[in-house]
Computed example of a mutant assay.
Amino acid sequence: MNENKALAEHALKEIQQLYRIERMADERNLPFEERAKLREELAAPIMKSLEAWMERTYPKVLPQSLIGEAIGYSYSLWPRMKNYLLDGRLKLDNNMAENAIRPIALSRKNFMFCGNHEAAGNTAIICSLLTSCKEQGVNPREWLIDVIGKMPYYQKPGNDENLKKLLPHYWKNEGN
């Protein structure tokens, strides 16, 4: 168990270095291109070292142990993870996405009491649209009032393109 703790601490220290590099880029307010260059210079060697460490360490641990599962999971995602080195727009983690969907995930239990499956689905759609408004900086009340007023004119067969224009990000760009 202590051996696994030491292994986990090693991996966490390496990951913390990656976050320090991201914090450095944030503090310098680097544009995406320069952030990618900084990552190539500082983070790429850490990523390469961590990948080699996983390859050496995994055969030495039990696959069902916590550290074995963590290494197996991480290594399986490693090719996609390395993409963050190439593009300064990509984040090191998915925390923003996780935080954005957390309210809906927490509401799942409440959806059980919506009455029926269709009502639960409709509630999920409404929550998704309102969250989209929030992410786009759109006032949900103004958006709903405008969109509900336009719906009868947009719900004609074959009018899907016009319906897309009512989505919060299009609506915002249309100057509403």
Rank of each mutant, 00 (worst) to 15 (best):
G72M: 06
A97R: 12
Q64A: 12
I101A: 14
L62Y: 07
E34K: 11
V61E: 03
E98H: 11
T131F: 00
M24V: 05
A44E: 07
A52C: 09
I104E: 14
S65A: 13
M47Y: 08
R108V: 01
A43C: 03
L30Q: 10
I15G: 00
L30D: 04
C133M: 12
K91E: 15
Y75N: 12
H10P: 01
K109T: 13
L30I: 02
M54D: 00
E118S: 11
M54W: 10
D26W: 06
K37Y: 01
D87F: 00
H10S: 07
W78C: 05
A43K: 08
Y75C: 04
S107M: 14
H117D: 07
A100G: 11
E34G: 01
G88N: 08
S74F: 06
I15K: 03
E55G: 04
R108W: 02
N110L: 09
F113N: 13
Y58G: 03
E135Q: 15
N110K: 14
E41D: 14
E118T: 15
P31H: 01
G115N: 08
S128H: 06
L42C: 08
L7F: 02
T131Y: 01
E41I: 13
L85F: 06
S128I: 07
F111Q: 02
C114A: 10
G88A: 11
Y84D: 00
K5C: 07
A97N: 09
C133S: 09
P79F: 09
W53H: 08
E34H: 07
A124Q: 04
L129Y: 04
K60G: 09
C133F: 05
M47S: 04
E69G: 06
L85A: 08
M96H: 13
K37M: 11
A70I: 12
R108S: 11
P45Y: 12
G88D: 04
L66T: 14
H10Q: 14
A11S: 08
N83Q: 09
T57W: 03
S76A: 14
K82R: 15
K82Y: 00
I15Q: 01
N110D: 15
C133N: 02
R35Y: 10
G88H: 05
E27F: 00
L7A: 15
F111A: 14
I67Y: 02
L42M: 12
K48D: 15
P59I: 09
A8E: 10
L18P: 04
E69Y: 02
R39M: 03
W78K: 09
I15L: 13
L106D: 10
